[in-house]
Design a protein around this nucleic acid. Structure first.
Lengths: 108, 108
DNA sequence: CGATCCCGTAAGTCATCGCTTACGGTAAGT
DNA sequence: ACTTACCGTAAGCGATGACTTACGGGATCG
């Protein structure tokens, strides 16, 4: 549960989500990621650092270029938190609904 | 896909996630939520406003108290984004792996 | 070797966020 | 009616965040 915070903080930024979406189609170099994004290339570099520290992205040097790719395992903690939260929330929601339903039969 | 941004931004804050976790066990009034949290009650009110605007939480007046509860539907967009992202990322990841594997057989 | 492309980092700026204290307003209890 | 509990909002402040421009260092090609 340790990396959950960094992961959520990373995904919270819209530009960073755009980077992730672009990377989800396959590995890319920094310049290719920056092309088409509304921010400068250094900004993309900073975003990539955040994503890398959050474990959402992996970096590989290929000559002078740095190739970035999605780290599928990095999404695990976030999905786990969301799933567990969803599960317990839905369970207590249904329990509440049944409780209200029973109370209505009690006092119509 | 409109509310995705607000939802992710809302969940990004650790205190807000604590509020959600507390609410996942069942509806609570503002004071009960604030009890046990490391911030003041007005801070909790502000967090609840953010969560409500993001569609993650619903509010109901009960006398002088305001009861907050999880809105199960509010999590939908976020989960949808994550699932689709996960799916395409994993697919392209496997495709890349197979491509590399084939290249290795080509030049051992 | 020099020019060029690739990129990360430093420094600085402007906006936004999360928090606090202080206040006002509505609902219930005496 | 007066007090007490419960809560939202306003104002202000310190901290963080996302950007920009400017720089420097390594890889590649002539």
């Amino acid at each position: 549960m340790a990396y959950v915070n960094a992961a959520f903080a990373a995904v919270a930024d819209p530009t960073r989500r755009q980077v992730l979406e672009r990377l989800s189609a396959g590995p890319l170099a920094v310049g290719q990621i920056a092309t088409g994004l509304p921010v400068s290339r250094p900004a993309v570099s900073q975003h990539l650092k955040v994503l890398k520290d959050a474990g959402l992205v992996r970096e590989r040097a290929e000559g002078a270029r740095r190739i970035y790719a999605i780290d599928p395992a990095g999404l695990g903690p976030m999905r786990a938190w969301l799933d567990q939260f969803w599960e317990t929330a839905l369970a207590s929601f249904q329990a509440e609904a049944e409780r209200v339903h029973a109370a209505e039969k009690e006092t119509p």
